[in-house]
Simulated scan of single mutants.
Amino acid sequence: MNARTPGARDKLAFLLSLVPYLLDRRHSTVAEAAAHFDVTEEHVRQSVRLIAVSGVPGDSTQYQHNDLFDIDWDSFEERDEIIITHLVAIDDSPRFSAREAAALIAGLQYLSAIPEQADRDVIGAVMAKLTRGASGAPLQVAVEEGVADNTLSDIRSAVSAERQIEFTYINSRDERERRRVDPLRIDSLDQNWYVRAWCHLRGGVRTFRLDRMSDVAIIDAEITHRAGDVTLPDTLFQASDNDVSVIVDLSKDAVPLIDEYIASTTANADPGRVTATLRLAHMANLGRLIVGLPGNARVIEPAEAREQISRWASRALSRYENDSASTQGSANEHAVE
């Protein structure tokens, strides 16, 4: 297919696209630029010559040499190579600081580390642009692969192949059991990964947290239940008839943070707070949930719940004082094993 020659109304848009392209590539040939933008090589040459006489006037309102773009004319005329040697205006645009760029690069590294990430090349290109475009050299950062990453990869394979999996699971009450499930779907919430599955031991759909799973094995047996055969609610956690209810005095700002657990709310004497009824799978799940909302939540009843918070805080304080590892587990969720 022959390259097209842009019309007059396309020329400005083309010039605005060509300059960032040349800056990003640092070095390009006329042929490469023409192929990238699907225009003729002669049109690229004309545009480059126009760029070389473009700029921003200084305080005198008259163009001086440093107010114009410049290119390596020898490379351009002799070898059809485009190299911008002097920039104007663009250098004054806001840039990420070195720390900001490092933080974004770390996040992109984590994203690219997710198994079967389809856009790793694109993510790599974005990281390279952040490195070049920062106001300073970003700090060297690296995201270590977690234990759950390998588990996630195995489960993805099982879901794709519609194969059952077996694993050892530690539930929220620190009980260890061997489970055999039909994996149906993988979800994530905050920094945690979960698998929705039909549990053959429980005879129903259960949600398992990946960092509580170990010794995961794909079984050479086809799943007996598929996502279309069972009901998978839109929310990750669901209430159950076996849930326990806890009444708390809660800051309105904290309501969105634990909305999954709230069954109902009523007005409070303090306009900035509400009285909320929480539904939890187990009373033992309450400790980390409340402690994770310092100053925003106070347990009112039942008495068992207040005692649970007191015991949880005492255990945590004791471990902190002994400089030992922090307590295992997390705030427990509805329907999460």
Rank of each mutant, 00 (worst) to 15 (best):
D91S: 14
S17P: 03
D182Q: 05
V126Q: 10
A125G: 14
T275N: 11
E177Q: 11
A269K: 15
D234N: 11
N171L: 05
A8C: 11
A35M: 10
A101P: 07
L280R: 11
M213H: 04
E32F: 02
L16Y: 08
R212A: 00
L189H: 09
I84K: 00
Q164V: 00
S47Q: 08
K11L: 12
R209G: 07
N171G: 03
E333V: 07
A137F: 05
F167Y: 15
D323S: 13
E100T: 01
A102M: 07
V248F: 06
A134I: 00
L87D: 09
V255Q: 09
A3H: 12
I90L: 06
R196A: 03
A331E: 13
D10Q: 13
E81S: 01
R45N: 14
L184P: 04
R311V: 08
T277W: 03
L108H: 08
V147M: 00
Q117P: 01
N322L: 15
D243A: 07
D10H: 15
V336H: 12
T61P: 07
D215G: 11
F69L: 07
R45G: 10
I90K: 01
A128P: 02
H27I: 09
V19M: 11
S314V: 13
P271Y: 03
R132M: 12
V56H: 06
R120C: 09
I247F: 03
I105D: 09
V88P: 02
V230P: 03
A137L: 06
M283E: 14
A89V: 13
A221V: 02
R26K: 14
I218H: 04
L22I: 12
A276K: 04
Q328K: 10
S153P: 11
A305V: 01
L18W: 00
D215C: 12
T224R: 12
P233T: 01
L201I: 04
G7C: 11
V216Y: 12
E32K: 00
F237I: 05
N242A: 15
A335Y: 14
S28R: 00
Q64V: 12
N66V: 07
A8F: 04
T151R: 14
D259L: 10
R79W: 01
I105Q: 10
I123Q: 08
D249L: 02
A267L: 11
E81Y: 00
L317E: 12
V244N: 07
R196L: 09
D121Q: 15
A113T: 08
E77W: 04
R9I: 15
N322K: 14
Q328A: 12
R120D: 04
R206D: 10
W312Q: 10
L236K: 01
A331G: 14
G55I: 08
E175V: 03
T266E: 03
I262G: 04
A217L: 10
R173K: 06
E333G: 08
D24T: 02
R298L: 15
I223N: 02
Y194P: 01
H200C: 06
R163E: 06
A284G: 05
A227S: 14
E222L: 04
L317H: 10
R79V: 13
A313M: 14
D187P: 03
I82W: 01
